[in-house]
Amino acid sequence: MSPALVSEVQTICKEDELVESHEYHKGVKHLCGRGLKKLPRKYILPALERPLLSTKDGATNLKLPIIDIAQLQGPDRVHALESLSKACQEYGFFQLINHGIASESVLDMIQAARKFFELPFEERSKYMSKDQSAPVRYGTSFNQNKDRVFCWRDFIKLNCHPLSDVLPHWPSSPAELRQAVVNYSKETRSLYLMLAKAILESLGLVETEKDIDENGSCDLLKEFEDGSQLIVANFYPSCPEPDLTLGIPPHSDYGFLTLLLPDEEVKGLQIQHEGRWVTVEPVPNSFVVNVGDHLEIFSNGKYRSVLHRVLVNPLKSRMSIASLHTLPFNSMIRPSPKLVNDANPRRYKDTDFATFIQYMASHEHKNKNFLESRRLTQLGDA
Rank of each mutant, 00 (worst) to 15 (best):
V9K: 14
E23M: 05
C13L: 14
L39F: 01
V6D: 12
H22Y: 07
S7V: 05
D16F: 10
E23H: 15
H25E: 15
V28Q: 07
V19R: 13
L18N: 08
V19E: 15
H22P: 02
A4H: 08
H25Q: 15
L5D: 10
R41H: 06
G33V: 00
R41G: 04
K38G: 01
L5Y: 05
E15V: 03
G35M: 11
C13T: 08
K14G: 01
K42P: 00
G35P: 12
E8C: 00
D16E: 15
G35R: 11
L36K: 05
G27V: 03
L18H: 11
I44K: 09
L39Q: 00
K29C: 11
E8I: 03
G35K: 08
Y43V: 00
L31E: 03
H25M: 07
M1G: 13
I12W: 13
G35S: 09
M1P: 00
E23S: 09
L31C: 09
H30Q: 09
T11C: 11
T11L: 10
L39Y: 01
V9E: 13
E15W: 06
V6W: 02
K26I: 00
C32P: 03
D16I: 11
L39W: 01
G35F: 09
L18T: 01
V9D: 09
K38R: 11
M1K: 07
K37M: 09
P40A: 07
H30G: 10
Y43C: 02
G35T: 09
Y24S: 02
H22N: 15
S2W: 03
G33D: 05
P3S: 11
S7Q: 14
R34Q: 08
E17C: 14
P3K: 14
P40G: 04
K38V: 04
M1Q: 03
Y24V: 05
T11K: 15
K42M: 09
V19H: 11
G27N: 06
Q10E: 15
H30K: 12
H30T: 13
L39E: 04
G35N: 06
L36G: 06
L39T: 01
G27F: 02
C13Y: 08
I44N: 02
E8W: 09
L39D: 05
G33W: 04
H25C: 12
T11V: 12
Y43G: 02
H30P: 03
S7Y: 03
S2H: 01
G33C: 07
E20A: 13
L18G: 04
H30D: 10
A4C: 00
H25A: 09
V9H: 10
I12K: 14
L18Y: 11
L39V: 00
K38A: 10
K26C: 10
K37S: 10
H22W: 03
S7L: 10
H25F: 04
